[in-house]
Design a protein around this nucleic acid. Structure first.
Length: 362
DNA sequence: CAACCGTGGTA
DNA sequence: TTACCAAGGTT
């Protein structure tokens, strides 16, 4: 059975009109007041959707307000320094979102005169704009009936329609997109899509859904069968691998601090950090030798002042924070520099290194 | 497809 | 504490 036939079978006995009417009525009445809902400005919608990827609403709100005051238009963002954009993103995580957003906005300014594209083809070519974000912008900013399937939508529809496909698999998203194309309101696709997401965030939550408050309870197959907490099906991800490091707070003779910029691709790309010595298979003496080889500086270590764990999606850094001072040598490392401790705040740092920096003033 | 890519909240 | 979760995208 192909996907089209499956969609037809799933929806054969489903009351579409009742579902979309009750969902939209509920959303219009109960939706939260959020900064990005003040208007339909496509740029604002776009920025909000990027920030909201894998990130909670409460976390995004202050970042969104600050970002929009700093970069109020596509032109303003296009003209900004990348470091300035990363600084505004500092602490939000997934930093490629920020670089991709700025690259895409520059593309919009240059190719489309600063107007965010209103069609799937051009929108989908922009960096960082995937299937979900594309549909979200088209429906919310341009009232176009395109699916915007995120984790909320898959959870809600898994329950409503009792679908047991693994939502961790990418192919499953396409099934839900096909279903949404059949269900979506042509009159108000924005409220329909946002209603599905809002329902997932406020009522149809992962652990303990509030089915007694649900506006579409009467259409929910999972509730009818008493299996709402068994859905959706999602395969578990594997554990992160741990890596030990020394995080060195190196001061020179004048009290300046050694910092370095990370590579422009990969983990925490283009952010700044304090030097880190990979301690797998190394002791403290070997660490000093390693550091001399990398940076051209001989240093003395103080006692460790803290242990910091940095948990990523797929790995964990276990760092011992070591104050150190330069004994001899000249800095010989292109991406590193000494700065006054007061200037460290001007650079974008990952959260773990911000924590380590607190030990500088002790 | 599965790995990579951050961070903070919560049970 | 562990494990999962939160308006995904890229490679």
């Amino acid at each position: 059975m192909n996907r089209t036939e499956r969609v037809e079978q799933i929806l054969e006995t489903f009351n579409k009109d009742n579902f979309k009417t009750q969902l939209i009525d509920w959303f219009k009445k109960e939706q939260r007041i959020l900064p990005w809902r003040e208007n339909q400005d496509p740029y604002r919608v776009w920025v909000s959707e990027i920030m909201l990827q894998q990130t909670r609403v409460d976390t995004v709100i202050p970042y969104f307000n600050h970002f929009l005051s700093k970069f109020p238009t596509p032109e303003a963002l296009a003209e900004a320094e990348e470091q300035e954009v990363l600084k505004a993103w500092e602490g939000l995580g997934y930093y490629s979102r920020a670089r991709n957003l700025q690259n895409a906005v520059r593309e919009v300014v240059e190719q489309y005169g600063g107007k965010v594209p209103d069609n799937p083809e051009e929108l989908g070519k922009l960096k960082g704009v995937g299937p979900y974000t594309k549909g979200a912008i088209l429906s919310i900013a341009y009232d176009t009936p395109e699916p915007a399937v995120d984790g909320n939508v898959m959870r809600v529809l898994s329950r409503i329609l009792h679908i047991e496909d693994d939502i961790a698999k990418q192919s499953t998203r396409k099934l839900f997109e096909d279903l949404v194309r059949e269900l979506i309101s042509e009159e108000d696709p924005s409220s329909f899509n946002q209603g599905l997401m809002e329902l997932g965030a406020m009522i149809c939550t992962p652990k303990t859904p509030s089915c007694m408050l649900c506006p579409v309870q009467s259409e929910c197959r999972a509730f009818d069968e008493g299996v709402e907490t068994e859905l959706p099906i999602k395969s578990s991800k594997k554990k992160q691998k741990k890596s030990p490091y020394l995080l060195l707070l190196v001061k020179n003779e004048t009290g300046d601090l050694l910092i370095e910029q990370r590579p422009s691709e990969g983990l925490l790309a283009s952010l700044w950090q304090f030097p880190m010595v990979p301690m797998k298979d190394l002791d403290m003496e070997a660490a000093k030798h390693w550091f001399y080889g990398e940076y051209g500086l001989k240093v003395e270590f103080d006692e460790g002042v803290d242990q910091i764990k940095h948990v990523f999606s797929h790995l964990i850094w276990e760092m011992e924070v070591i104050p150190a001072k330069v004994v001899e040598g000249t800095l010989d490392y292109e991406r590193a520099t000494f700065v006054h401790p007061d200037e460290v705040v001007d650079y974008p740092f990952p959260v773990s290194h911000q924590k380590a920096f607190k030990h500088i003033n002790l």
